[in-house]
Design a protein around this nucleic acid. Structure first.
Lengths: 241, 241
DNA sequence: TCCCGAAATAAATCAGATCTTTTCTGGAGG
DNA sequence: CCTCCAGAAAAGATCTGATTTATTTCGGGA
């Protein structure tokens, strides 16, 4: 089931992200063949993908040069995953959080106008789960429901690019929970705000949906800051923390 | 200078985006070798990248299956380019615009806190160019300055993911101008708002920067809607249209 | 009818050759 | 000593064809 080239891609990607292979570093296909004991086609395919992510550039007579971070395709899920698994984790979470603070209110507003009845139902169901598990203090189950809530909302925005960011949101939410930046029991107000978003979406009230979502995020930010856990501006967190 | 595999990748990508190769369609590496008259390594590398973009999946004994759009990595610049060059152009621009309406205000707020003196200078210079070319009615030069302005702003946000969206903004702005959704002469108020963003960023006033950017976008949206050109909700356009 | 093994299929991998581009090196000429 | 050009060398790009492996199909037997 393994895929050789995927293994090599993964290994190289992680080495680059970790800084083991820093921008400017040069390696050759031969190096890769030797180091990972694979044939040329495997190393080539791995490198080709890496190049398509802007992480390396290949030049004849020179070899493969690791590219500066500014050129990386930072929206690639694989790259996000590598960064989250590396030293870079905190920075990646911060970036994702800031990003999220921008697009989630938009998604909520759009969803209010475009959500299908099925999506409204799914949203309501997810909110219901959040209430139940939140009251019970079951953080993992609450997190799962929270992730579903936001995924459905993004999907309901009817914008495929927003929908594609569901992984981002899931990572942020999971990261916050697992890094213990959440209270042991989700705040009632936070849950209430999710209920409000769902209500506004059902009612087709874009402004209300947007406002509630903005509040969710800013409240969460304040809470985190007040928590003295860290201090990111506009801070991205975005959930009852 | 050509790169065989890149040509094939481009050709296949465009065929998929255009619907010529619809989701569910199956093809084999052999088909590609034959159709484009290239060797196996070339077709393999092209397909590998396409797979990494979520556009095809390869399975033994079956071949390559074109994947549904929901799984595509829609943030990949190549995919965005293909969509912009296809029938899908309008939808892609709408998506990008909506997205932009979310993240640009955030970027402005962050830039107010994080911009370096050099970036403030670049921003001011860009605004100056906008004023000059705007007054002169030179739409192309104005567009160029506008693009620079937004690029610098995104970069100044200090968030590499926001910075990576500079291409998105450039495409939206260029698309609006070249689709004649702009007045023959940029509105003074719109220019004034850009001046205000630059001022707020220099002053480190995050709230003001965010507010001005939000106004830029909503004013532009209203203008477009009033223009009866089209009607996208929250319309994302975002520029003096 | 159901299950199992053989055959067929197409991707995955390997191996090695050839082509092309880019860079480096020496030497000729100024 | 510097400049310029030809030739060598390095490394990716492409090609070819063989081998391996996973998956599906299908025929035969219980």
């Amino acid at each position: 089931m393994a895929a050789l080239h995927d293994d090599v891609l993964d290994a190289l990607g992680r080495r680059i992200v970790s800084g083991d292979l820093a921008p400017g570093a040069v390696l050759t296909l031969d190096d890769i063949d030797t180091e990972y004991d694979v044939s040329r086609s495997v190393s080539r395919e791995a490198v080709r993908v890496l190049a398509s992510m802007g992480m390396v550039a290949s030049r004849r007579r020179v070899g493969l040069t690791v590219q500066p971070r500014t050129g990386w395709r930072v929206f690639d899920p694989r790259l996000i995953r590598w960064r989250l698994d590396s030293e870079d984790r905190a920075a990646q979470l911060r970036s994702l959080g800031e990003l999220r603070s921008g697009f989630e209110p938009v998604a909520a507003a759009l969803a209010a106008v475009r959500a299908t009845p099925e999506q409204c139902g799914a949203l309501t169901a997810a909110v219901g789960d959040m209430v139940v598990h939140g009251r019970a203090g079951d953080l993992e189950a609450f997190l799962a429901a929270d992730i579903v809530f936001h995924r459905v909302l993004l999907e309901a925005s009817g914008n495929e690019m927003l929908a594609a960011l569901d992984g981002v949101v899931a990572e942020v939410l999971a990261g916050r929970t697992h890094h213990h930046l959440m209270p042991t029991k989700p705040k009632d107000e936070a849950i209430e705000l999710h209920v409000e978003v769902a209500r506004a979406v059902r009612a087709g009230d874009a402004a209300a949906a947007r406002a509630a979502m903005e509040t969710i995020i800013s409240e969460a930010t304040d809470a985190v800051v007040a928590d003295a856990a860290s201090s990111t501006i506009l801070g991205g967190d975005g959930e009852h923390a």
